[in-house]
Design a protein around this nucleic acid. Structure first.
Lengths: 241, 241
DNA sequence: GGTACGATCCGGTACGTACCAGTGAGGATG
DNA sequence: CATCCTCACTGGTACGTACCGGATCGTACC
């Protein structure tokens, strides 16, 4: 039944189970019992349990003592994902808009150069924008993009998603990002822009966005603390994909 | 050796191993061999392997065929993961300590009841703690745990990891959590506790921790904005809109 | 007809044995 | 002295047995 050799039986059995739960079974359906599987595939129960526990560990199956083992309902959505401000605000039920404050080619500072993998002094587009939700200030953003990657960025309409421009005009797809966040007082400059008090709390995000070929974007965003919150899921360890 | 209670042996052994790799061993060090552990704790090798594989699955241990099992080196870049305050601060190079402000059984409020899947008014342990890093206040935490799950939580030493207590005493392993974070001004109460100004920014985390069987913990933490920051990775969601 | 009980199934726990392939230290060999 | 090889030891695989407590359901009893 199994034993194409080469691979351990519990790995082969795992693959066989995964195939059936993907092709034949609905979420919530029960898979055959462990003892049933031992006779079907002619393996020991320990082997069956190894295969099953592997799938349980990845969230594909759930065991119910006294009942059986059921196919897990797929998760609806992971909260923390890479989304543009526009997408993000729409999902939260707000109407997003953007005010472009400035767009110019400048020399990259040290931190930006390091983040983008270029040399300090290299030319980068610096885009400064105010992000509104329902016509009230939500966030202030400054972004930097290497001019070498997006030479004519300033010619585009920057009031929408820059990610969309990167894709449509330059074929650059930001697939993942890394960001650090902390809390600050607004201070004079941002208090004015965000229309809050100078001591009002803001959430700062320093984000570096990357395509498959490397870093493309650095953005520092300041969100009004009274209007923004962030949800995320945490796992204890890597759940091997 | 084990069996001080009614918990499964592999859970007890898991807790024992976790304690030793946290207290005694350095990252990269090898734990005793599986066969060694069977004689030390007088259990079968299957039990030892169950305990070890659980820790491997969470990224605490790594097995090396032919060599042994080593304590995992923590990742340099502390990404977003579920870690206790103690672990978190150590990874950041600080010396953590804790001051227990109060511990009492109270009636669950509405939000807590909803988060924990119990009824408002049900008994919950309320633990209030001040978390210090290098002897300076870093965060204030209030946690709630259903009394039905952890009846004698107040008898334990609450100055360390409550997650460790949950595992060792009650066999409850928090495997994942969901949290929402936002920025606030400290305000009178927390300014005093955290030793900052009343308008100083704090990062608030509202977290619900769950075991395989459901929610176990709600914690609201307030971190000093000037001392704490959070890093995370983002991937592009499947919502290609 | 409703309840209580027991048979039977389920996953969970725990024990034992056996053999394999890779590692690495130390002794035998050249 | 360097090299090779043996061998003890490691985790990985796989088998078997046994018993537990929870869930389910049919049946016998009130």
């Amino acid at each position: 039944m199994l034993n194409d050799s080469l691979l351990p039986k519990h790995v082969q059995l795992r693959a066989a189970l995964l195939k059936t739960i993907e092709d034949e079974l609905q979420p919530g359906a029960m898979i055959p019992s462990e003892r049933d599987l031992t006779t079907r595939y002619d393996v020991s129960r320990a082997t069956v349990r190894a295969a099953i526990s592997s799938l349980v560990n990845e969230g594909r199956l759930t065991t119910v003592p006294g009942r059986g083992t059921v196919v897990t309902r797929p998760r609806v959505e992971s909260n923390l994902h890479l989304a543009s401000f526009t997408q993000d605000m729409r999902q939260r039920g707000h109407r997003p808009s953007t005010e472009v404050l400035s767009a110019a080619v400048v020399e990259a500072g040290e931190a930006t150069a390091k983040a983008l993998g270029i040399s300090p002094g290299d030319s980068v587009w610096e885009i400064e924008r105010l992000r509104l939700a329902d016509d009230e200030p939500m966030a202030h953003e400054v972004s930097w993009y290497p001019e070498a990657i997006v030479p004519a960025l300033g010619d585009e309409d920057l009031s929408g998603s820059i990610y969309a421009i990167l894709e449509a005009t330059y074929g650059v797809v930001i697939t993942d990002a890394h960001q650090t966040t902390w809390a600050e007082q607004a201070g004079h400059t941002y208090a004015h822009l965000l229309e809050v008090g100078e001591t009002a709390p803001v959430m700062v995000f320093d984000r570096v966005g990357s395509s498959h070929e490397g870093p493309v974007e650095q953005t520092i965003s300041r969100y009004r603390g009274d209007r923004y919150q962030l949800s995320m899921s945490l796992q204890r360890g890597p759940s091997a994909r």
